[in-house]
Amino acid sequence: MSGICDGRVVVVTGAGRGLGRAHALAFAAEGARVVVNDLGVGLDGAPDADSPAAQVVAEIRAAGGEAVAHGGDIATTQGASSLITAALETYGRLDTLVNNAGFLRDRMLVNLDEDDWDAVMRVHLKGHFLPLKHAAAHWRAQAKAGRTPVARVVNTSSGAGLLGSVGQGNYSAAKAGIVGLTLVASAELARYGVQVNAIAPAARTRMTEHTFADTMAAPGEGFDAMAPENVSPLVVWLGSAASAGVSGRVFEVEAGRITVMEGWRAGPSTDKGARWTPAEAGETAQKLLGEAETPGQVYGA
């Protein structure tokens, strides 16, 4: 296989199903050698009897590509470290990290248990941080040794992380945290040849199958707007050398649409040059709000 990722080694977390699987197959189709990570758990994080990572590796190899499975828990130091080691020991290098692993434990805030909060934060946010940390340490060492890499990281946020989503306080907070992590990593790692971006995808996966159940194309109709494979081309491009100069950006990806998201930035502002009284502050805030753009609506509101 050859393509825009020819010769690159790519790690994809949560790659046994859904978006991760689509990403792994797409990278392999473009010439990458892929480390397919998947813990093999259900939607709620409980152990699953299947071995999805091995199945994806088999698909890639059957198509003539190269891949290896990794079943470690990337939300632990040992699991994240062994993931990066798997790429280096198997293929001798690491070029791209795609952080994708996640699951849901949806509840309204008043019903959200502490364990449900912690579990989602652990998998989504810590599960992004630890692989990124260990990959970045490798790339920094390479750069300091005079072998500056052409490294890429693609993180997975969500529209819920950008706008919020009713019934998903834990998930929304974790996905918003991933955007913040992306911005910091982009700034800190640029000197080592690393570009870091994030996507906010919308696709039909195990996590969203009920949401998008009615959007599947009927047999013979062609384009399935909610197929996870629609998201992967942008991820592959961001993970390739062809994306040079693009870092610290967030892209919303859905069906055939790609949108560059523009985050928090200064809007209307007034400076009194002295301390406000509460009444003055309130009056001024109301005036500024009248001049500001209306924010996007929280999903499900």
Score class of each variant (00 low, 15 high):
160 A>L: 09
54 A>K: 13
22 A>Y: 11
69 A>R: 02
79 G>N: 09
195 Q>D: 09
301 A>R: 14
248 G>C: 02
157 S>L: 07
228 P>I: 09
44 D>E: 13
24 A>C: 10
29 A>Q: 14
240 S>E: 04
50 D>T: 14
147 R>F: 08
44 D>A: 13
38 D>P: 03
8 R>M: 10
176 A>D: 08
255 A>Y: 03
214 D>W: 01
280 E>Q: 15
182 T>M: 15
225 A>H: 08
145 A>S: 14
251 F>L: 05
240 S>C: 08
47 P>Q: 04
131 P>Q: 11
157 S>P: 02
11 V>F: 00
103 F>R: 03
122 R>W: 00
82 S>R: 12
143 A>I: 06
223 F>M: 10
84 I>D: 05
93 R>F: 02
194 V>I: 15
178 I>M: 09
12 V>D: 02
189 L>N: 06
117 W>V: 11
175 K>R: 12
116 D>C: 05
171 Y>C: 08
297 Q>G: 11
158 S>L: 07
221 E>G: 03
77 T>R: 14
114 E>I: 08
248 G>F: 06
18 G>F: 03
107 R>F: 06
116 D>L: 05
19 L>M: 13
98 V>N: 02
237 W>C: 05
211 T>K: 11
174 A>R: 06
172 S>L: 08
2 S>Q: 15
36 V>H: 03
100 N>F: 01
39 L>K: 07
35 V>T: 03
102 G>K: 05
160 A>Q: 09
43 L>P: 08
55 Q>C: 13
21 R>P: 06
5 C>F: 04
33 R>I: 02
54 A>C: 00
178 I>S: 07
167 G>R: 06
264 W>S: 13
254 E>T: 14
96 T>M: 02
225 A>E: 07
168 Q>R: 13
73 D>M: 08
255 A>L: 04
253 V>K: 03
297 Q>R: 15
43 L>N: 12
38 D>Q: 07
8 R>G: 04
89 E>I: 01
